[in-house]
Simulated scan of single mutants.
Amino acid sequence: MNTSAASRRQGVRTLPGVYAPQHDTHLLLRALARETVHPGSEVIDLGTGSGLLAVAAARRGAQVTAVDVGRRAVLTARLNARLARQRVTVHRGDLTDPVPGRMYDLVLSNPPYVPSPLGPPPRRGNARAWDAGHDGRAVVDRICDAAPYLLRRGGVLLMVHSDLTGTEATLRHLSRGGLKAEVSDTARVPFGPVLRSRLPWLRGRGLLDEHTDEEKLVVIRAEQP
């Protein structure tokens, strides 16, 4: 998939330092297209980045809230919603902090998930969009914790991450929260520059073997019974 061309077709713009839609975003967009979204459905996009997913949900008539910790991401998402002539409420904040106590029909997230040799996730800089601690789960686990309280009955979480992050760990975590969790889609994509830069470390930890030259992405779908 040519993600740059796909993004242009969606009319997406990104300010410098904002994560531009890549394979993972478009895999999640494909998963979103399979979900039933009614006019008036309440949707939240956690870590919205460019706002592509939020705008896609708004185009289907949903009432959409988008959240990102980055100031430039918030501005970018607002810009893209305006360009698309869609109403999206965009907050700056850490995951659900700006919307305490709210519940939704659909939760979307493409969180930071890349395992990093540098330890705790960075508080600033471009790497904040992908680095997620030694196991890549610093944000994924927080979303798993929050999901049971965010979803109404019958509500759905769609979250994308790398298989390097631990697909089974995510499924177990969500299941412990009472959700019906499964892998709804996968894709294999060439290593990007971030993974290529840390291949020796990833292989040293046993996360990749010497012959692997692709990353497996997974979409996790979890439903509140």
Rank of each mutant, 00 (worst) to 15 (best):
A54V: 03
P39I: 10
A58Y: 02
R60V: 01
G11W: 00
A222Q: 03
S197C: 03
P190R: 08
T170A: 11
A62C: 07
R203G: 14
A66M: 04
P21E: 08
V140D: 04
V107Q: 01
Y19G: 14
G154F: 06
V218F: 09
L27Y: 11
R85E: 10
R72K: 08
N80W: 07
P16N: 00
V219F: 06
P111A: 01
D135R: 15
P100W: 10
L52H: 05
S116F: 05
R102N: 00
D163Q: 12
G101V: 01
M103Q: 15
H211M: 03
V139I: 11
V90Q: 06
V37P: 12
L79P: 12
Q63K: 15
N110Y: 02
P98S: 11
R71P: 08
T186S: 15
L217I: 09
D163P: 05
L118C: 08
G204L: 12
V69R: 13
D141N: 13
M103T: 15
D185I: 01
A5S: 08
V194F: 01
L195V: 08
V194H: 01
L174I: 04
V37T: 10
L151D: 08
R78A: 09
L75N: 02
A132I: 14
G17D: 07
D185E: 11
I220P: 05
A5D: 09
I143Q: 03
P115S: 09
V219D: 14
C144Q: 07
R87D: 13
R87S: 11
V183T: 15
S116N: 08
G177R: 10
T212P: 04
T36H: 13
P122Q: 09
N126S: 13
A5W: 00
V90K: 07
A62K: 03
R142D: 04
A54N: 08
H161A: 01
H26L: 13
V55L: 09
F191Q: 00
R128D: 02
G93M: 06
A20L: 05
T48W: 05
A20C: 05
T186P: 09
E182S: 15
C144K: 03
L15G: 04
V114S: 02
L174G: 02
A57N: 08
R176P: 05
V114T: 09
K180I: 13
P122I: 11
P225Y: 04
L208K: 09
H91P: 08
P39K: 10
L27N: 12
L207C: 03
P225K: 00
S162T: 11
Y19K: 12
L150M: 14
A181V: 03
L217K: 06
R8E: 14
A62F: 02
Q10I: 00
G166K: 07
D105L: 08
G192Y: 00
Q224S: 14
S197V: 00
P120T: 11
S162Y: 05
H134N: 14
I44F: 11
L46K: 07
V18P: 07
A222L: 01
E210N: 10
A132C: 10
R30F: 11
E168T: 07
P112G: 11
R176W: 05
L150C: 12
P16C: 01
A129V: 12
D145G: 10
P112H: 10
G125N: 12
A33N: 07
R30Q: 15
P117I: 06
N110Q: 03
G125A: 14
